[in-house]
Simulated assay, not measured.
Amino acid sequence: MSVSIDKRPKAIQLRRVFDHFEVDTIKIGKVRGDVLAIITDRLSQQHITRQVSGCNSQAVTMAIIRLL
């Protein structure tokens, strides 16, 4: 179940608390369909980026769990 970012709590939008993350993926590699999983902390704007083999939700979910 996804929730629109327009409906996030105001406390998160203020960016005053560490540990609120945004996650996005960017498709790379034409042949294998790999993606970059990008996790961004909203307060510090620091990014964690990892290449994920496979362009499916299970592979991306497992990569995010390992990163966090």
Rank of each mutant, 00 (worst) to 15 (best):
V17W: 10
R15C: 12
H47R: 07
R15D: 03
R16L: 14
V35W: 00
S57W: 00
V52H: 00
A11Q: 15
F18I: 10
V23I: 11
D19N: 14
S53T: 04
V31N: 09
K10H: 12
R8N: 09
R16E: 15
E22C: 07
N56V: 02
T61I: 11
I64M: 06
V3L: 13
I28E: 09
Q45F: 01
M1T: 14
I26Y: 05
Q45L: 08
V17A: 10
V23R: 05
G54I: 01
D34T: 06
Q51K: 15
D41R: 06
Q46W: 10
R42Q: 04
L67T: 07
R15F: 04
D34H: 13
L43N: 00
V31R: 11
D24Q: 07
F21Q: 06
D6K: 15
T40V: 12
T61G: 09
V17N: 10
I39Y: 01
P9L: 12
K27L: 13
I65R: 11
R16S: 11
S57N: 07
R66A: 14
T61A: 15
Q58M: 08
I48E: 07
N56M: 03
A63C: 10
T40Q: 10
S2Y: 13
M62T: 08
Q51M: 09
D34F: 05
I39H: 01
D34A: 13
L14T: 10
V35A: 00
I5N: 14
L36D: 02
L67G: 03
Q13S: 15
F18E: 06
V31G: 03
I28R: 09
M1Y: 12
S44G: 04
Q45G: 03
M1L: 15
V17L: 13
F21S: 02
K10G: 07
R66D: 15
I26F: 08
T25W: 03
Q45R: 15
V31Q: 05
D41N: 14
Q58C: 08
Q51T: 07
G54Y: 02
G54E: 00
R32L: 06
D41C: 10
D41Q: 05
G29P: 03
V60T: 10
L68F: 14
E22P: 00
R50W: 01
R8H: 08
S2P: 13
R42H: 03
P9Q: 09
G33H: 04
M1F: 13
T25M: 07
K27E: 10
I5G: 05
Q51P: 02
S57Y: 00
I65N: 04
S4E: 11
P9I: 10
L14N: 14
I39L: 13
G54D: 01
H47D: 06
R50V: 06
I28T: 12
R16M: 12
V17Y: 09
E22D: 06
E22W: 03
P9M: 11
G29F: 01
T49L: 09
I64V: 12
I64F: 00
K7I: 10
T40E: 04
M1Q: 15
D34I: 06
S57Q: 08
V17D: 08
R42D: 00
R42I: 04
A37I: 03
T61D: 07
T25P: 02
D19F: 12
